[in-house]
Structure formats: C-alpha cells, structure tokens
Design a protein around this nucleic acid. Structure first.
Lengths: 139, 139
DNA sequence: TACTTCCTGCGAAGAGTTTGCAGAATTACA
DNA sequence: TGTAATTCTGCAAACTCTTCGCAGGAAGTA
C-alpha cells in the first residue's frame, strides 16, 4: 500500500511514528492532532503527543497532509490526496458534511474574476445549518 | 449614535465596561478579544481581559455582536449590523479582504438546493491568495 | 435610601500547542 | 557490516488563549 519510499522521496527519515501518523491521517479522513494521537496509540501505545504535532507539521511541509480550520479553534488534518471536498459545518449539531468541490466552482470564479482572489477551496470551512437541523428549526 | 437603551432593551445592565466593549467592536470592524481589550484600555485602562471575554459573550447572546473564524484559531468579533461582507483571508500575507455577500449568492443557493445546507455567509472565512500575493507568485 | 441582583477584577485553572534537551534510532558511507 | 553524522522521539516545562470561582462593588428597583 503506502510504499515506504514516499517519505524517503521527501527527504524524511522513515520512523514507525511517522508512518503511523501518516496512516492515521489517511484512515481518519479528517482529524484533530488529538484524534490522530489516539488512533496511532491503538498500534503504537507509547507515542507522544509532541511527536504527533511535529510529524503533522513535517508532513504538511512536504505536502503529504494539509490542515483546514473547521471553526472550533483547532486545526484538522487531511491526507493531501483525499482533500477533494468542501466541509459543511453545522452550527447547530456540529456535524461535518461534505460537498464536492464543483459546488463552489462558480463562487471561486466570481472571486477570481471580480476581486483577483484565488480561493483555496480545500482550506475553508462553510458554516451553516445542515438539512437535519434546518428542518428541525422550521417546525 | 448608540442610544443607551439598546443595552437595557436587551435586559442588560449599563456598565461603562460593557459600553466600551461594544463601542470598540463597532469601531474596529473586526477584532480579536485581545484587540478589543487594547482598544478599550485607551479610554478605560483598568479593564480586565475576563471582562472583555464575558461581555463579548453576553453581547453575542443578545445579538449585538457576532464572531467569525478567520482561521488562525481565535475568533474575531464584529458588530452585528456591520457584518455584511465576506472575509477573504490571504494565506500568504494574512491580509483580510472584503467582498460583498452577493458574490456568494449562487454558491449559497447551490448548497441549499442540492444539499439542503443553509449557509451562514456571515460566519465563514474564505481562504486563498489575495491579488497582490497571487501576482507576486506568478512572477 | 435600602435592597436585590448583576457585573467586575483578580487569581487560578484548564485546554491546546510549542519548545529545549538528552538519549535513541535512522541513514550514509567506508 | 561497522561507524559516524544527523535526525527523531519522549519527557517535561513553558506558553498562549480562554474560562471559572470568588468577594467586593456597581446598577437597577421601589
């Protein structure tokens, strides 16, 4: 699966901790550093939180993972190749939904054409009410 | 300008601290709690940071101010009546630009029609490269 | 004015993240 | 395969940002 060389190619050393962190990010989809640590501990109990933080940063620097801000303050991490969707964060229930990037295509073009702003769609969270909470409120 | 009654009408007591916090938010446009505190201290030096936090929360509860997440973690506060624009946060220089809400109208409709998601446009930040940084990079 | 209730300042506590250091572990090279 | 150079990890402490408990003080009410 995850060839060992992808870390070498980036000039990084191949340590179990680093592999586990990368694997955890890929499995979790999106996860906070804390969640990544928890996941990693299921196979590598001794891993330190600092190590997770440092590896997330390192992996982000070489482009293997990315982080997004979903609002509550902390960052959440994604495998770079899996970040192909928008995040719809419900202000009511906190649920994080997905929508394809294409849904924002017009919006991105508008901002680019009219304001010269090159939107990084993969990095922003969209706030609002999910369909469940919206219908709950209209009752 | 800011009639004294607007706080009374919300069932809040009228304290100098509270008035200053509200005034600071209105003057600053968008500001972190720390910035609000700094602003308030220019006229009311002794104000405590906790007081600022508590008043921001109180004022938000009654709908006079709102907060948005611009990404770096902390929240920034706005006067409710002034929050009529999108935030374009530059990932490179950190500058916060504005765009009218209408620029997102199509996007909001798309999400509503296709995913049932009711976007709160005033609460989300848009990440990307501002025109200055974008042209810098293309050189 | 006197009373009730809310608000403020202060200090401490809590969550989340970063940093310095010493001891491993990994890699490169002979 | 052995050895040296360098990076990485774990641990503990430090830091930032935010919240909380408490006691005194201020605002509102009659």
């Amino acid at each position: 699966m995850a060839g060992k060389h992808e870390l070498h190619e980036k000039g990084l050393r191949l340590t179990p901790q680093r592999e586990f962190v990368l694997a955890a990010v890929r499995q979790l989809g999106h996860a906070t550093p804390e969640e990544v640590a928890e996941k990693v501990r299921s196979t590598h109990p001794g891993i330190n939180l600092s190590t997770v933080y440092r590896n997330l940063e390192t992996l982000e620097n070489v482009g293997l993972v990315l982080h997004t801000h979903l609002g509550h303050g902390g960052a959440t991490y994604h495998a770079a190749e899996e970040l192909t969707h928008l995040h719809l964060v419900c202000s009511d229930c906190g649920e994080i939904g997905d929508a394809p990037i294409e849904a924002a295509a017009n919006f991105v073009n508008t901002l680019s054409d009219e304001y010269g702003f090159k939107t990084d769609v993969t990095h922003f969270a969209v706030y609002g009410l999910c369909s469940k909470c919206a219908s709950k409120k209209s009752k």
